[in-house]
């Protein structure tokens, strides 16, 4: 049985077409606020797709991926900031970073590679653990990255912000990388490694008896997913122009994990749909927090409604549709 070409590429092609169309529509409207929201959403989508690549295929929850995002974001800041800035703010950087500026594509690639390198070392140690222990270890990793980056002042600026990163990422750059992430995640899931990894997710014992080297396939996925997430971090830095270590900690971890769970952990379509759905929920709640006029009266939700609303949405999905809005199936 040979699968015809269009059916084989159906999922990534549909997803990429949908995202591109979305950006085309939004830029046609031309609202700055809309472009901002859309770009941020697409960057988060890259991170969620990266997270899916590991979590969705291996069945092991990771609470540490935002650590890779932070690592990527700081790498690109080191590479692209003007040397005059770095000599003042980041005196601990090695000369090849402090005295030079690298172009955006090189910096983004380096961000992915450094995150992947860290994942290789971390993963070699924790992929041997059983699922729950490995998840907890990823959480410990997030805490370690946060502590180190918050305190290593000569290299990260500590708790003060790093400013002046070139803001070169808009909706079109973001959607191009999101499409790249879709292709990469899809290619992985239909590859030999993707198949073996999903087998180990469904039944570890049977996978071993099918000659699957579980530690190895998990590690490959972990490293590839960290690469995508590290690039996502770099794009985020080039979108905001400002970095703080607080941006890459619990709040963002919660939002990205919610996106994956709401969409459906088990499918790429779920990662994309979840990012869209959660962004929509958050934006509506954010608008309500700002308040709106209703028949002469000013109504607004109390601050923090965003987080509560997101938590409720997450709980409702887990109760009524545990496989997420995509039912963990592909388009």
């Amino acid at each position: 049985m040979k699968i015809p070409l269009p059916a084989r590429f159906r999922t990534p092609v549909l997803l990429m077409a949908g995202l591109t169309l979305l950006v085309a529509l939004a830029t046609a409207i031309g609202s700055e606020q809309l472009n901002f929201t859309l770009t941020e959403m697409l960057i988060r989508m890259i991170v969620v797709i990266g997270l899916y690549m590991f979590v969705g295929n291996s069945g092991i929850m990771s609470f540490g991926h935002i650590g890779f995002m932070g690592i990527g974001a700081y790498v690109t800041a080191w590479a692209t900031l003007a040397p005059e800035w770095k000599q003042v703010m980041l005196q601990g950087l090695p000369a090849f970073l402090q005295e030079h500026t690298y172009p955006f594509p090189v910096a983004v690639l380096a961000s992915g590679l450094v995150a992947a390198g860290v994942a290789l070392i971390l993963g070699a140690a924790i992929m041997r653990l059983n699922g729950l222990a490995a998840s907890i270890a990823t959480f410990a990793f997030l805490a370690i990255v946060y502590s180190v980056y918050s305190n290593w002042e000569s290299v990260t600026g500590g708790t003060s912000s790093v400013i002046g990163i070139p803001t070169v990422v808009g909706p079109w750059t973001a959607v191009a990388f999101a499409c790249l992430a879709v292709v990469a995640a899809y290619a992985f899931q239909v590859s030999r490694y993707g198949l073996m990894l999903r087998a180990s997710r469904d039944d570890e014992v049977a996978a071993q008896s099918s000659s699957v080297d579980i530690v190895r396939v998990r590690l490959v996925a972990f490293v590839c997913s960290a690469f995508l997430v590290g690039m996502g971090g770099a794009l985020y830095a080039h979108f905001l122009g400002v970095l703080t270590t607080d941006a890459f900690y619990l709040a963002l971890s919660f939002v990205t994990l919610s996106m994956l769970v709401v969409g459906g952990i088990g499918s790429l379509t779920g990662a994309v749909a979840g990012t869209l759905a959660v962004t929509l929920i958050v934006e509506i709640l954010r608008a309500c927090e700002r308040g709106f006029a209703l028949g002469g009266a000013q109504i607004s939700l109390p601050r923090g409604s965003q987080e509560i609303g997101l938590g409720l949405a997450l709980a409702l999905v887990l109760i009524f549709r545990p496989a997420g809005i995509s039912r963990s199936r592909e388009l």
């Binding site: 030999r192 198949l195 087998a199 469904d202 039944d203 996978a207 000659s211 699957v212 963990s328």
Partner: peptide, 18 residues
């Protein structure tokens, strides 16, 4: 001990790929 969320063909393919 089948791989429940995978197709029958994929279940058997895993061994070949492994």
């Amino acid at each position: 001990r089948l791989f429940r969320d995978m197709t029958v063909a994929e279940n058997v393919e895993v061994t070949g790929v492994g």
